[in-house]
Amino acid sequence: MEKVVLGNTNIEVSRLCFGSLTMTPFQANLPIKEGADLIKYAFQKGINFLDTAEIYDNYGYIREALKEIKREDYVITSKSYAYTEKMAKDSLNLALKEIGTDYIDIFLLHEQESIHTIKGHYEAIEYFLKAKEAGKIRSFGISTHRVSGALAVKEFKEIEIIHPIVNKQGIGIHDGNIYDMLDVLKDLHEIGKGIYGMKPLGGGHLIKNVEESFNFVKNIPYIDSIAIGMQSTDEIDANIHLLEHGYIPKDITDRLKRKNRKLIVGDYCVGCGNCEKRCQQNGITVIDSKAIPNEKCILCGYCATVCPEFCIKVI
């Protein structure tokens, strides 16, 4: 698989990044060995880049996979909500210990909203920069669901990598549309920031138009790599074929169509009711301050487009 260097870093990654959230207790809840086997299978197919986060609670999968993958051949990103030095230190040490490694390639501040949240987290940033000097991380950056978060990266030379939402419909972007986001990302690419996009299928809501949606992101010249959730060998093969050929073979498509997909709502739902108002099928209802899908849900994904917390997904 084609490899690229993330921006001005010296970190070389595959054009596909293994999004590991989908295998976790939050979604598929795969056994450790099964999840580790998928990571190893993807690596054998050329995917040397994996995205995780402290909140995903899946470091055990990676530790198991690294028993058969040379650490220096693999690139791991983790993320944290830390905003103090102690929280940052604890987050990094947890990742190092539970993955069983001496360093994390890329450490990100999770879901940064703007220049104000970045400044509010600067005590943690200072710790991560010291950790970089000590060789415990190779590069530092942020993830964001907001155009304002991407804009803020311009103001911080110490932020080398950004992990933004990028999909054809802009699902999950809280403060603009996909073209607003792309305008900023193009500027960031030109000043040497590494960019790997998330949610090319909008958290599962664009699966019915998977080839068109994936190719839209793949063909953006300033997106270095694409993180996408994978929870089976068929999904790994499908995504590799999409990247390399632009389509999914019919036999794989047929098998994937047989998967029983469902709508899930994250525990961090605030019960705002936007989804209930948006749904024309009466397929989701707010009960006791949380959105609950029901048998009328047709997995159209329209509810996710109005969710301010991006907590509604199709798996």
Rank of each mutant, 00 (worst) to 15 (best):
T305M: 13
Q27E: 09
Y61N: 04
I115A: 11
R138P: 03
K257V: 04
N239C: 13
L185T: 08
A152C: 08
T285E: 15
I298C: 02
P221L: 08
P31T: 00
C269V: 04
T144S: 10
T117D: 13
E2H: 12
K45A: 08
R255G: 09
K86G: 04
K67T: 01
E235A: 14
S114C: 02
N93W: 02
F26Y: 13
V286M: 12
A65W: 02
L16M: 13
I252L: 11
S14H: 14
N219Y: 04
I125A: 13
L94C: 06
F214K: 12
E113P: 00
Q169G: 07
G204L: 07
S289L: 10
K33R: 07
I191W: 05
S213G: 11
I118S: 00
E235G: 09
H189L: 00
P308A: 05
C303G: 12
G141F: 11
N260I: 14
E160L: 01
N282T: 04
K67M: 01
A131V: 00
K199L: 12
E235T: 11
K262H: 11
I39D: 04
G301V: 09
N209S: 15
D267P: 00
R15T: 13
N29W: 02
H189A: 09
R278Q: 15
Y122S: 08
C311H: 01
L92D: 04
L256P: 10
T101V: 15
K67N: 06
C17N: 15
F49A: 02
K40P: 00
I207H: 09
I47W: 04
Q27T: 01
L66N: 04
E54H: 07
I142C: 09
P200M: 14
E123V: 09
L206M: 14
I55S: 11
I240Y: 05
Y222N: 08
N294P: 07
D105F: 00
I118H: 07
V5A: 01
M198F: 05
Y247P: 03
S225R: 06
K218L: 12
K157M: 05
L16T: 03
M230W: 00
G170I: 13
G204E: 07
G135A: 09
I236F: 09
P164C: 05
V166I: 15
K218C: 07
C275Y: 07
S225F: 04
